[in-house]
Each structure stands twice: as structure tokens, then as C-alpha cells.
Write a protein that binds this DNA or RNA. Structure first.
Lengths: 225, 225
DNA sequence: GAACGTTTCAAACATACGTTTGATTCAATC
DNA sequence: GATTGAATCAAACGTATGTTTGAAACGTTC
């Protein structure tokens, strides 16, 4: 096996994440990888295939680790359903781990995924299809951890949670800049805890008990007389 | 004033959102708008200026509406700090309103913002700079609604919340497809309520009380003897 | 060490891009 | 109705893109 292939994947991933998929040319990738201009087309066939490989190379082990954690929690509680924080932790932590342990590889990937989420019709459909099994396992686990909650409600909240996680990772520099360095990606464990706490609170909230507009506004009218 | 300008903005917004910034050429935009190839460069100077205008055209009234709501809540409570749900509602609702009232315009814009969030270094910095005033007002409002909570913690949670909101809007089709039509963008009020409830729960959660890994595992060892 | 499949290479391919140009049309003003 | 400034137009500019090509270099295998 040539290591040019791996080198191309690494370089592509890094450049893609830094400036988006279309902003990076194959020439740039091959140049930075000290390879020939034709290298990408030789090893992957096309730019699109390169992109697919870049994604699936990280997505696959990521989802495996997620399911492994989910299984571990189930085993630890002697077969009972994992708790809500556990399910969320299994979903979130592998991503945070990827971000902190090797930001040079994690950041690109997560940012890439965000780009893809917001670009429907392209590679997006294929990626989601690949994840379908994992997603369904997690939806089932969430249902188990939240008995009595409507499936539709769970799907909505899972959607919110996915967004929080994705944005947290992909737009991290924005927060770091805005907070003037106060909010930084350091420990994966700390970050996961913080995020899981937030999401757990969100999943347990009851929309019916929410009060936004104060109801008793009649008193106001009286006092102005 | 020529209406070619407006038409170009509309067309650009729509195409950009559908396929990303770089994937759409000026020729495509001008062709679809039945304008000349040089029209964009005449009216806006460059493609980047076009992008800036596309964004700020929607971002400005959006942020004005957000602040208007925040002020309205403050006034309604006779000058007291708005409650947490109120602050979140003011931040979130104008976006949901935009999405539901005219999806053909709202979806493109939100998706565009997500693209920009995940592409650091480009237009991103300028956009965030434009929003700085609005952001600071909301951070202050959140601090007021959450007395005793560390500013750093508030910034993290605001980051999570932004992600949930952005993803909710920009990746809406993914959820609709996955739920087989069960989760759809219908009423802005319903959607805002659902999201605000989730975020309120998240903001009020205490990370210190979170239990993920069960602590007393010593009993296990004993039982296996 | 000859023959082989794999990998690399320099060079060129056709195409598409953002932008510029200079002429032309148009509506309003004097 | 001539003049003026804004708007549109067809055409071309230079550059960069993804991809293809055919020859050269490489490492194995017999």
C-alpha cells in the first residue's frame, strides 16, 4: 500500500475543513502532500470520491465508538436501559474526544459534516443513509430513557441536540474569539459533561409548563385609571 | 432604482442556500435572473460584496426584531429583567418566524449562515462583528435572567443554544425526511415554544449534579465472588 | 535480470470561472 | 430634441479548475 493515499486523505481533510469543500483545489491538495497533480484522480478517481472517503474514514469509527459506549452502559446496568445522560454522553463524547485529542484531525471533520448538513441534495443523503442504523439505535435508547414521551417530541429534541453538538464543535473558534479565550476546547470529559448537562436539561423540559407571555395582564389596565 | 439589483439578491440567496457559496457561479445567478453576465459586478462590484449584501439584508431586520422583542419583554415587566424563556424566545422566534412565514426566503438565509459559521476566516469574521452589539445585549439579558451563574458558563450554553437553533432551521429537511413527515415546519409559535422549552431546560441544568457513570460499583465485585 | 503490475511524473486537455471593456440602450433633464 | 448619467449588453480577458494522457520510475516475482 502506498502512503501517498493516506497522506492525500489527511491533507484533503485539513484543507477542506479550513476553507470548505469547493474552495480547495486538487492541485492545492496534491502540492501540499508533495504528490503529483494526477495523484488524487489515480488513487480516488475523482474529487467527489476523495470527499466521500475523507468523511467515511472518520464517520465509521466514530459511530462504532458511539454504539460501543451505548452497549457498555447497557451492560453496566445489567441489561437495563441506559439513563438519559448516558445515552447523550454516548452520542456526544466520541465527537468531543475527537476534537480534543487531535484537533488537527477532528476540527476538519466536524466542520465538514456541518457543511454537508447545510447542503442538501449532495453527498448529504448518502451520509445520512450510512448513519441510519446508528441514529435508530439512539432514538430507541432515548425512547427507553424517556418513557411516556411522544416519539415525535423525541425526534425534535434529538434534532436540537444534534445541532448543539455540531455547532459546538464546528464553530468553536467563534466562541473562543468572542469570549477572548475564556471558553476553549481543553478536556473532552469536561466539555462532554457540560454539553450533556445542557442536553439532559433540554430533553427533560416540558413545553406545556413553559410560560413566556405573562398571563395576568388585566391588573395593568386597572392601575392606569 | 433598478429592480435588477433586488432580483439578483433574491436569486443569489436562493442558489447559494441550495448548493453553497462556491458551488454557484455568477453566470448562473445572472442567467437565472435574466440579467447580463456583468450585472453582478456592475451592481455589487464583486461576488464577495454580493454575498455580504445577501446576508446583511436579512440579518439586520432579524436582529432589530430580536432586540425589539427583548425591549418589549422588559417594558412588559415594568423594567425588570426578562425571564430566561423570554430572552430565549426573543432570540429564537424571529428566526422561526422567518422560516415559516416565507420558507423560500428564510431557508436559504439560515442555511447560508450555517455555511458561514463552519467556514472560519472568510466572511465569517465580518458577520460576527456586525452582530456583536446584538450578541452582547443578549448575553447581558441571559446574565440577568440567570443570577449567580458564571459568565463563562453562560457563554458555553449560549453557544449550545445557537447551534440548536441554527441546525434546527438549516437542516430541517433532514428531520422531515427521517421522521417521514411527522416533524415539519408549520407554526412558528409552536416551533419556538418547543425550542425555547428545550433551551430553557438546558440553561437551567446544573452540570455538577449530573451523574453519568454510576459511582457505587464496588457491590458488583462482591456479588461475583 | 527480465517481465510484470503499480505508482509517479510532466504536460496538456477542455472547460468554467470572476472580472473587465467599450459600445449601446434607456429615461430623465435642461 | 440634444445631453447626460445610469443601466444593459455581447464579447473577450486572464486564470484556475478537474481530468486525461503516455511515458518514466519503482518494487516484486519468477
Amino acid at each position: 500500500m502506498s502512503d501517498t493515499r493516506e497522506l492525500l486523505l489527511d491533507t484533503a481533510e485539513r484543507l477542506f475543513a479550513a476553507r470548505g469543500l469547493d474552495a480547495v483545489s486538487l492541485r492545492e491538495i496534491t502540492a501540499e502532500a508533495s504528490a503529483n497533480t494526477a495523484a488524487v484522480n489515480y488513487h480516488f478517481g475523482s474529487k467527489e470520491n476523495l470527499i466521500r472517503e475523507v468523511i467515511s474514514r472518520r464517520m465509521q469509527p466514530l459511530n462504532e465508538e458511539r454504539l460501543r459506549l451505548l452497549d457498555a452502559f447497557t451492560a453496566a446496568s445489567h441489561g437495563a436501559s441506559p439513563t438519559l445522560p448516558q445515552v447523550l454522553y454516548a452520542f456526544v463524547h466520541p465527537v468531543m474526544e475527537m476534537m480534543t485529542s487531535d484537533p488537527a484531525k477532528g476540527t476538519p471533520f466536524v466542520r465538514l459534516m456541518t457543511h454537508i448538513h447545510a447542503t442538501p441534495g449532495g453527498v448529504s443523503a448518502a451520509v445520512v443513509a450510512d448513519m441510519r442504523g446508528t441514529i435508530e439505535r439512539f432514538i430507541a435508547a432515548l425512547s427507553g430513557a424517556l418513557p411516556g414521551v411522544d416519539l415525535r417530541e423525541i425526534l425534535w429534541r434529538a434534532h436540537f441536540a444534534t445541532g448543539a453538538m455540531a455547532h459546538t464543535a464546528s464553530a468553536a473558534p467563534l466562541l473562543e474569539a468572542f469570549s477572548e479565550g475564556a471558553c476553549r476546547f481543553t478536556s473532552a470529559e469536561e466539555l462532554s459533561t457540560r454539553l450533556v448537562a445542557f442536553l439532559t436539561g433540554g430533553f427533560r423540559a416540558d413545553p406545556k409548563k413553559l410560560k413566556i407571555h405573562q398571563r395576568p395582564r388585566t391588573a395593568k389596565k386597572v392601575s392606569s385609571l
